[in-house]
Simulated scan of single mutants.
Amino acid sequence: MSVQFIEKNGHKQYAVVPVDLYETLLEKAEMLDDIKAYDEAIKRDEECIPADVVYRLLDENKVRVWREYRGLTQSELAKQSGLAQATIAQIEGGKRTGSIAVLKKIAEALRLDLDDLA
Rank of each mutant, 00 (worst) to 15 (best):
T24L: 15
D45K: 14
R56S: 12
K79H: 11
L117H: 07
I35Y: 13
V53R: 03
P50H: 13
D59A: 07
A51P: 10
A107C: 06
L110C: 01
I91W: 04
D20P: 05
A107E: 01
Y38V: 09
Y22V: 03
A86V: 14
V3N: 09
I106C: 00
A41S: 08
V3G: 05
V54S: 03
D34S: 09
I49R: 03
V63R: 01
L114A: 02
E92T: 03
V53T: 15
D59T: 15
K8S: 07
L112C: 03
Q85C: 01
L112Q: 04
I49C: 06
S99R: 05
A84L: 13
Q13F: 13
A109K: 01
D116T: 06
E68D: 07
Q74K: 12
R64N: 08
M1W: 11
V53Q: 03
K8Y: 12
Y55G: 11
L103R: 14
R67Q: 00
C48Y: 15
I35P: 11
L58E: 07
R64D: 09
A109E: 02
K95T: 15
Q4K: 11
A41N: 04
R64T: 05
M1H: 12
A118F: 15
Y55I: 11
A37P: 08
K79S: 13
T73N: 04
R96Y: 14
L117P: 04
Y14P: 03
L83C: 06
Q90A: 10
I42T: 05
R44M: 05
K105D: 00
L110Q: 03
I6Y: 12
Q90K: 10
G71W: 08
G10S: 05
Y38R: 12
V17Q: 00
E92S: 05
I49P: 06
M31D: 14
P18E: 07
Q4V: 07
E76I: 00
G82S: 07
D59K: 15
R64P: 04
A109C: 02
L77D: 01
K8N: 03
R64S: 09
I35G: 04
L21E: 09
I6A: 07
I6F: 12
D39E: 13
S75D: 08
R44N: 10
I6W: 11
E68A: 05
T97E: 14
G71L: 07
E47T: 12
E30K: 12
L110D: 04
S99A: 01
A29V: 10
G93R: 13
D113Y: 07
C48T: 15
A109M: 00
V102F: 09
A29C: 01
E46S: 07
G10C: 02
Y22R: 08
V63I: 02
E68M: 04
D59G: 05
R44F: 06
E68C: 01
R111K: 15
D52I: 01
A109L: 03
E27C: 08
A51Y: 10
V63Q: 00
E108S: 11
N9Q: 09
E60A: 02
A84Q: 09
V17R: 03
L58M: 09
K28H: 13
V16W: 10
A101S: 14
Y69E: 06
K28P: 11
L103Q: 06
I91M: 01
K79A: 12
I88E: 00
E7S: 08
H11N: 15
V3E: 08
R96I: 00
Y69D: 06
E7D: 06
V65E: 05
W66D: 01
T73K: 14
L57D: 00
Q85K: 11
L110W: 09
A86W: 10
D116K: 08
E46D: 13
E68I: 06
